[in-house]
Simulated assay, not measured.
Amino acid sequence: MNYYEPLVYVVPVEEEGFLLKTILQKRLHVSRKLISRLKLTEQGITVNGVRQFISVHVHAGDRVELRMEQEESEDILPQDLPLAIVHEDEHLLIAAKEAGMIVHPTNGHYVNTLANAVVFHWQQAGVACRFRPVHRLDQETSGVLAIAKTPYVHQQISEQMIAHSVKKEYLAFVWGVVDNPGGTINEPIDRDPEQPHMRIVTPAGYSAVTHYEVVEQYSRAALVRLWLETGRTHQIRVHMKHIGHPLLGDKMYRLARYEEESSAVPGHVLGRQALHACMLGLVHPGTKEWTEFTAPLPEDLMLLKQWLQETEQNRENRQKRSIEQ
């Protein structure tokens, strides 16, 4: 049986006599579910190299080790696909997902996903890991996405997300002139009863909080930075539409008053919703330090930004000539 590198904790003097269970839960922050799983493994939980019950008392200097069995995603077909890796270590793989790529195989989409690309990458590197995305991005959303390499890492980041301590930052191009330089949208979200695949703002929905600030304002659109306190499905898209500023290129959440402006955007400039996950910040499960991972705007959104800036400049030039005449 093969294991990942063990998670090691040396008991300090002040923890002399603590229960092993306390060390696991309070110091290593291992969930009850994962402890139960480790107890079934021959070398899952050891003290000084010997398998132990979690009810034993530990002593200063004891070496507590957790070992998790290596796993592979046998149901995911490895594929040699483009894969932009922002960071990788024995705990995490941080990828910059490209727009149009689905994160995980689903019914009808068994290939050409991020999972297929990552599994192929690990296969070529001789790494045995199961594909465990810690969060998701919509198919058309590009940007930073975290993939845990072990159950422990997945659990650690999931708990951070539940506690709202993970920082997720996005850049989006939205329609209209945003009156306020920044603000907070605190509006509950739930499924649209008439179109279950969509979400709407509704008083009966689940709490959803989005913060935003304007980075660049153009005459008919704006580049905004957003960060989330919650992670509801389609949250940014729903909230921005709710305040009258839907995302450029968003075919699902749009407003009729921007249809004419939408038709003016060249097809080669934007073929998807203009949303990019630019930064992910979390406490790294291995180093226990706050770490931020970033991904710059991809080429298509840089083209969109350039088009908006040029359109703005052309408008200002026309106004200037008109005044001079």
Rank of each mutant, 00 (worst) to 15 (best):
V283P: 09
A146I: 13
K288F: 09
Q306K: 15
F293Q: 01
N180Y: 06
K288A: 13
P196L: 09
P6V: 10
N112Y: 08
Y258L: 03
Q156I: 04
D300N: 15
V13F: 05
Y206G: 06
P296G: 02
S31F: 01
R32Q: 10
P82Q: 10
E260T: 13
R225W: 12
L145W: 01
W122H: 05
E169R: 15
V201P: 07
H59A: 15
A84T: 10
Q43W: 07
R220N: 06
V238C: 05
P196K: 04
A84F: 04
E312C: 05
A295M: 06
V283K: 07
W227D: 06
V153I: 14
K26C: 09
L40W: 00
L38F: 04
E260N: 06
E324D: 01
E72S: 12
V119W: 03
Y3A: 01
G267A: 14
G205Q: 11
E159L: 03
A204V: 13
Y4P: 00
C129M: 04
L270H: 09
Q79S: 09
I162Q: 14
A222M: 03
D80A: 15
E260D: 14
N107P: 10
H91P: 00
Y206I: 06
R254N: 13
E187I: 00
D80P: 08
G108A: 02
L34V: 09
H242K: 05
V166P: 02
V144T: 01
E98D: 15
E140D: 15
R225P: 13
R63T: 14
